[in-house]
């Protein structure tokens, strides 16, 4: 079976004057459809860089990223934006919702950059908002929500385009433990429904909920 996401011999380095900083060193990983994978590592291990490359927000200095069997190397900025829009749903630590914008509008945002007809937008967004249990807060502005509610809005937004992968970067980092557990449950539910989830975290306890862990250290995959 073709992996949903593959990184093959991915290296990433930054040149700072005469000094070269290697953030990722020859990283090769495969993630199968429906997997729940945690990318774990301490600060500076390269996990954020790997997440950006897997999320097609950044390009590797060497190596390739293959998404659903399609090599993304050499894709134009517009093509990469299209792939991000259709295939990847992002959930960020700081929620990244549009301020003073309603729950509905926040969730509809990815649809506005998609080829989905605008007559479908509201229907799709409402489905996902219901899925995360926020139907009653539909017209609330994002700044009127609690942290947990904000993250559920972010999850609904990540799901709205039916992407192949959900990429979550420290999704419980800004939440108290009880709310964090609720969000974790959301991810587990999504995974049980067949959604591929990649969780990036430095928190070993959180990583344990994933079925597989990819551990990074000093830019290498060590496990």
């Amino acid at each position: 079976m073709t992996p949903v996401l593959q990184a093959q011999n991915v290296c990433k380095y930054y040149d700072l004057g005469t000094q070269r900083i290697e953030a990722l060193k020859n990283v090769s990983i495969e993630i199968q459809k429906g997997e729940f994978v945690a990318i774990v590592g301490k600060s500076g291990s390269g996990k954020s860089t790997l997440m950006h490359i897997l999320g097609l927000l950044d390009t590797p200095s060497e190596g390739e990223v293959i998404l659903n069997g399609v090599n993304t190397k050499g894709m134009s900025e517009k093509e990469l934006a299209g792939v991000r829009n259709n295939e990847i749903g992002f959930v960020f630590q700081s929620f990244n919702l549009l301020q003073r914008t309603t729950v509905l509008d926040n969730v509809m945002l990815p649809l506005k950059y998609s080829s989905v007809p605008n007559t479908e937008w509201k229907k799709r967004a409402l489905e996902k908002i219901e899925l995360v249990g926020l139907s009653e807060r539909l017209n609330n502005k994002s700044n009127e929500l609690s942290g947990g509610q904000k993250q559920r809005v972010a999850i609904a937004r990540a799901l709205v385009n039916n992407p192949s992968i959900i990429l979550a970067d420290e999704p419980t980092g800004n939440l108290d433990s009880k709310t964090g557990e609720e969000i974790v449950k959301n991810f587990l539910d999504l995974n049980s429904q067949g959604k591929t989830i990649i969780l990036v975290t430095h928190d070993d306890d959180l990583a344990k909920i994933a079925k597989r862990q990819i551990v990074l250290k000093d830019g290498y995959v060590v496990k």
Binding site: L57, A81, G82, R84, N85, F90, N96, L98, P110, S114
Partner: peptide, 16 residues
Amino acid sequence: TQEIGLRKALGATSAN
């Protein structure tokens, strides 16, 4: 700036 980053992550192009 952060909003621009978010929109790009969600699929907006530079032109958008």
